[in-house]
Simulated assay, not measured.
Amino acid sequence: MLIRDIKNCDYFKALDNTILCELLHPKKENEDLNINYSIAHAILKAGESSLPHRLKTSIEIYYILEGKGIMHIDDESEEVQPGQVIYIPANSKQYIENTAPNELKFLAMVYPMWQEEDEELV
């Protein structure tokens, strides 16, 4: 049985300026999970935004947990809030802004799993 707890996760600043903890990444586990996606917990501080970037071959799903913001995908922008799921197609220019006075927290799910060489700043 594999159970991850956010309280024990190591956070780092990602290429796109979000603070991330990889909750589940099959290439970084000691056991074979037989999955091809990854899940990270992401945080943006008040007034910050991620840097415009794209995942060249992977799709990404954001699930907003706390806070509010504006999601930008290519030429579209929409306000987002807790309980919403955002689909980000592969090779789309994307970034998210935190418009709330508190942290914006969300889950980022990537399929196929996130790989450094697949992400680029734009």
Rank of each mutant, 00 (worst) to 15 (best):
68 K>D: 12
68 K>A: 12
76 E>W: 08
73 I>Y: 02
45 K>H: 14
87 Y>P: 03
68 K>R: 13
37 Y>R: 04
71 M>T: 09
71 M>L: 13
42 A>G: 15
84 Q>K: 12
61 I>P: 02
88 I>M: 08
50 S>R: 07
41 H>C: 03
61 I>W: 06
82 P>S: 08
64 I>K: 06
84 Q>Y: 10
75 D>H: 12
48 E>N: 15
53 H>K: 00
48 E>V: 11
43 I>T: 08
70 I>M: 02
54 R>V: 06
65 L>S: 03
90 A>F: 09
57 T>E: 14
72 H>E: 00
83 G>M: 09
66 E>S: 02
48 E>W: 11
40 A>G: 11
48 E>M: 14
87 Y>T: 04
79 E>V: 08
38 S>C: 00
82 P>W: 05
86 I>A: 04
87 Y>S: 06
41 H>T: 01
89 P>G: 04
68 K>E: 15
88 I>C: 05
78 E>M: 13
70 I>Y: 01
42 A>C: 15
45 K>T: 10
71 M>W: 08
53 H>G: 00
60 E>C: 06
60 E>F: 06
78 E>C: 06
79 E>H: 10
81 Q>K: 15
34 N>Q: 14
88 I>A: 01
62 Y>V: 02
62 Y>H: 11
79 E>C: 06
87 Y>A: 06
52 P>T: 02
75 D>M: 10
39 I>W: 00
52 P>C: 00
48 E>F: 14
67 G>T: 09
42 A>T: 09
52 P>K: 02
81 Q>S: 15
50 S>L: 06
51 L>S: 09
55 L>A: 08
49 S>K: 15
83 G>N: 07
90 A>E: 14
90 A>S: 15
50 S>V: 07
89 P>T: 05
38 S>Y: 00
75 D>N: 14
65 L>I: 14
88 I>L: 08
79 E>G: 09
87 Y>G: 05
61 I>E: 03
79 E>K: 14
88 I>E: 01
88 I>P: 03
69 G>C: 06
79 E>N: 13
88 I>W: 04
33 L>E: 07
59 I>F: 13
57 T>D: 13
67 G>Y: 09
46 A>W: 07
48 E>A: 12
72 H>A: 00
54 R>C: 04
47 G>C: 09
37 Y>P: 02
45 K>S: 13
66 E>I: 03
63 Y>T: 10
59 I>T: 13
52 P>H: 01
40 A>H: 11
41 H>K: 08
72 H>I: 04
78 E>N: 12
59 I>S: 12
57 T>G: 05
88 I>G: 01
83 G>D: 05
45 K>N: 14
45 K>R: 14
